[in-house]
Every structure is written in C-alpha cells, then in structure tokens.
Amino acid sequence: MIGEALTDILTGPAGVHGEHPGGSPANVALGLGRLGHPVRLATRIGRDRTGNALRAWLERGGTELLPGSVGDVPTSSATARVRPDGTVGYEFDLVWDLAPATVEALRSGPPAHLHIGSVATALPPGADLVLAATEETRPRATVSYDPNIRPALLGDRAHERARVEHLVALSDVVKASDEDLAWLYPDEDPDTAAARWARLGPALVVLTRGPRGARAWWRQGHLDVPAPPIRVVDTVGAGDSFMSALVSALLRRDLLSGGGTSATAATRARLREATGAGALPAEVVEALRYAVRAAGITCSRPGAAPPTYEELERPPV
C-alpha cells in the first residue's frame, strides 16, 4: 500500500474532542491488518510525538512500514470538524512525499495487491511517485483505488478529473463516495459518472452513499446494497473501513491478489469473469455486504476504528 498517515484532530461545537491516528490509506492498511492480512505501507511519518503514536498504532494493527517511511519531518495532521449530524469536514496541515529508500523498497518488494488513494495520489511531489509505482506494479499485482477527494487540497477541477480518471483506468476495483463524484462532476449525476468509470477499465466500481449504503457498478449493470440501521457517532474512517473490508473479502475469494505476471493475469481474469454478466455472483454480493457492515461498525464509534475479523464474523445483532 502507498499513502499518507496523519493525525486526525477531532473538533466539534464544544471544542477539541481528541487526537486519533488516521489518514485514508493508513486507515485501510490498519483495517486490512485487523482483518488478518499482512500489510506493507509506504508512507511519510515523523519521529515526533504524533508520529510515534501513528507508528505504534499501525504496528499494533499488523502493518509493516517500508524502509524510509519514518524520518526527521513533521507528522502531518487533519483537523476533522464533526457536524451535528455526525458528518465531517476537514482542514489539512500536510506534506506528501516519499523518501528514496521507500521508492526503492516499492520497486523491489513483492506486492500481492496494491491499494492507492486519497491525498497521496493528488498532492505533489509525492503524487507523481505514486502514479509511477502504480504503473510499474500493475503487471504483477491487482490494484484498488479510492480517490477520497479533499477539495481544500486540490487545484483545477478539470485537471483533477483527468488525473482521477487515469488512475481509475489503471485499477481493478474503485471505491468513491457520492460526494467525491459530485465534486468531480458537478453537472452530472454521480450514478452516471460511476457507470462511465466502470467502462474505463475497472471490473468493479462502488459508490458509497452514506446512510443509503452502497451501489456497485460493473459493465453489465448495478446493484444496491443497503446499510444496516445504526446509531452514528461520527463518520471518520467509514469509507476506509468499507474499502479494507471489500479488499479483504475479494482477496479471500481469490478475486484480488497477484505475486507475478502470470498469477496476476489469472486473478484479473477471474475478477472480470465474476463481473462480466448481467448479475453479480453471490461471492461478490457477499463481499459488498461485508464492506457495508464494516463501515457501519466504524460509524458507531469515535474516530477511524475499523472492525476486527472477529467482529465482522460475529452475527449481526
């Protein structure tokens, strides 16, 4: 995995609620680790107080940091302002780049699946390194992508659309929120945009829709997956929990993975076959339900706290 790790500073009408480790790719890494998968993360963390907390949080969750990911730099932060309905707006103090040792580790490592997304794919100078690593890795690993749009950090909308669509075309599975697509395509319905993305290259495009659950698109159709009723504490990290659980479920069904050119080609073919008909097979539908449930559990507690494998395997109450 490649992407930012930072400290989420939660605030609301009453002031600061607390600090939580976070960053979208780091949350996905933690989620996959809690679900029992070995994870290697290329990121940028300082040796300061918040950086030490981030590193310990990731390591406890089963995430290995690639060489060069920790350095003598300030650890980035995002101030998450929780609104009365539990939704969140963000302000960032963030620098994104990768150390030369981390770039070399990405080239030499044996990824079985690559996840990219969020600020790491958008903010220079590191975004160009992420794109190059994705293009280099794609022949030997399947790819998932979550644009996780942060308008405060982005430039011209047309430029961002082109960048995002290029990464969509390189990916096998894409997850985006309806808010992401509304920003990218303000004059177009998010469903229309998601359906078009499904024709750009991915086998599966999933649109998350908050309390309405998710809608999955593939070349031949779409499917709604409703969200279970929950008491929302906040939505921090919900989309990342969805992403990690979806990737986990597809990995366990041998629909994502890799490990070499021929193995990746065979896995990619299985995923395309599974999404090549008018209806999704049960294994993909169950993976989507698993992801929706993971997001719901995260919304029911504060901060980016993805569920463990044991929590998700427990029958819903």
Rank of each mutant, 00 (worst) to 15 (best):
L181R: 09
L181F: 14
L181W: 10
L181T: 09
A182R: 14
A182L: 07
A182T: 13
A182M: 01
A182N: 04
A182Q: 10
W183A: 05
W183Y: 12
W183T: 08
W183L: 04
W183K: 08
L184P: 03
L184C: 05
Y185R: 08
Y185E: 06
Y185W: 13
Y185G: 08
P186I: 13
P186M: 11
D187S: 15
D187C: 11
D187R: 15
D187L: 14
E188A: 15
E188S: 15
E188C: 14
D189N: 15
D189V: 12
D189L: 14
P190G: 00
P190A: 00
P190D: 00
P190F: 00
D191M: 06
D191S: 14
D191N: 12
D191F: 06
D191Q: 13
T192M: 07
T192F: 04
A193Y: 06
A193E: 06
A193T: 14
A193W: 09
A193D: 02
A194T: 05
A194S: 09
A194I: 02
A195T: 00
A195I: 00
A195H: 00
A195F: 00
A195G: 05
R196N: 01
R196K: 05
R196L: 01
W197R: 13
W197K: 12
W197C: 07
W197L: 12
W197G: 09
A198H: 01
A198D: 01
A198I: 01
A198K: 02
R199K: 11
R199Y: 01
R199T: 13
L200Q: 13
L200I: 04
L200E: 09
L200P: 01
L200Y: 09
G201P: 07
G201F: 09
G201Q: 05
P202N: 02
P202Y: 03
P202H: 04
P202S: 04
P202M: 04
P202A: 03
A203M: 02
A203K: 02
L204R: 05
L204P: 02
V205D: 01
V205W: 02
V205A: 01
V205F: 02
V206T: 12
V206Q: 05
V206L: 05
V206G: 04
L207K: 04
L207H: 03
L207E: 01
T208G: 08
T208C: 09
T208D: 06
T208V: 11
T208R: 09
T208M: 10
T208S: 12
R209L: 13
R209Y: 06
G210Q: 01
G210E: 00
G210F: 01
P211R: 13
P211D: 07
R212D: 15
R212K: 14
R212H: 14
R212T: 07
G213E: 05
G213A: 08
G213C: 07
G213I: 06
G213T: 04
G213D: 04
A214R: 08
A214K: 08
R215S: 12
R215G: 06
R215E: 14
R215Y: 10
A216Q: 10
A216P: 10
A216W: 12
A216N: 10
A216K: 12
W217K: 05
W217S: 11
W217N: 10
W218I: 12
W218C: 09
R219P: 06
R219M: 11
R219C: 11
R219H: 14
R219I: 13
R219F: 09
Q220E: 14
Q220M: 11
Q220C: 12
Q220I: 02
Q220G: 13
Q220S: 13
